[in-house]
């Protein structure tokens, strides 16, 4: 189990990239926007998706780190499964921390009535009406999903090289093409999908994320199990 601890420690030593830098970026984007908006006030209520920055940033960091940290961990003879488990544990911790921070900002945003200018940048319009714990859960799952997606894509490259990523991209494209364009026996998938969402509500839709997370985790584990460093 010492291996898992080492991997968690590696992520802890990377706290700058996981926490400081993305929140610094988000903070500066917020401040610049806030300044600009204060001067150009219009009475309209706005809700942009300013917090997307942090989601995309963490996804990218996850992708890059998986490769670099694995090469190092493997050099320290850390078991591959320990690397995977340690990394996923780090991902969960980072997701919890990031969601908490985001929620804190959302609470402040709501209490100040959109920073005094009715500007809602940290919450998503679609989830704005949800209870705080529901929003928290959704952010947590989305963070986790994106970080794991980063790990997963990186593991494809490690296991099957860049060609593997290309194959995966093509497969994904074909999958969506089939989903969105086929109407078998007059059944339109896309339309049925949105109808389904309409019937069950977004909360149910977000509950599908854990399924994706599990799938990503499973594939990540599978690909890393026989991963090797080519150098």
């Amino acid at each position: 189990m010492k291996g898992i601890r080492s991997v968690l420690y590696m992520h802890w030593r990377s706290v700058g990239s996981w926490v400081y830098i993305p929140w610094l970026i988000l903070g500066s984007v917020f401040l610049i926007n806030y300044g600009w908006r204060s001067f150009h006030q219009d009475s309209q209520s706005t809700n942009d998706v300013g917090n997307m920055v942090i989601f995309i940033y963490l996804f990218t960091v996850a992708w890059i780190f998986n490769g670099q940290l694995f090469a190092f961990a493997s050099g320290l003879s850390i078991k591959r499964m320990h690397f995977v488990l340690g990394s996923v544990m780090a991902a969960i911790l980072i997701s919890i921390g990031s969601s908490l921070l985001l929620m804190l900002l959302i609470v402040v945003e709501n209490m100040t009535n959109g920073w005094g200018i009715d500007w809602h940048t940290f919450s998503w319009k679609v989830t704005q009406t949800f209870a705080y714990w529901e929003q928290f859960a959704i952010y947590l799952l989305v963070f986790l999903c994106l970080i794991l997606l980063g790990f997963f894509l990186s593991s494809i490259v490690i296991r099957f090289r860049k060609r593997g990523l290309l194959v995966f991209g093509v497969l994904l494209y074909v999958f969506f093409l089939v989903i969105s364009n086929t109407s078998v026996n007059g059944f339109d998938h896309e339309e049925a999908f949105w109808t389904w969402i309409g019937q069950h509500g977004l909360l149910v839709f977000y509950s599908l994320i854990p399924a994706i997370i599990l799938l990503l985790f499973g594939c990540y584990m599978l690909f890393m199990r026989r991963a090797i460093i080519r150098s």
Binding site: R5, R13, S17, F65, F72, I229, S231
Partner: peptide
């Protein structure tokens, strides 16, 4: 412990980070 010439390290790691991780391992 396998020390190899081709070993790569995380870009953002300082020497201290590396030695501390090795110590923990």
């Amino acid at each position: 412990c396998f020390v190899k010439e081709s070993q790569t390290y995380p870009d953002h790691f300082t020497v201290k980070d590396i030695l501390l991780t090795a110590k923990a391992t």
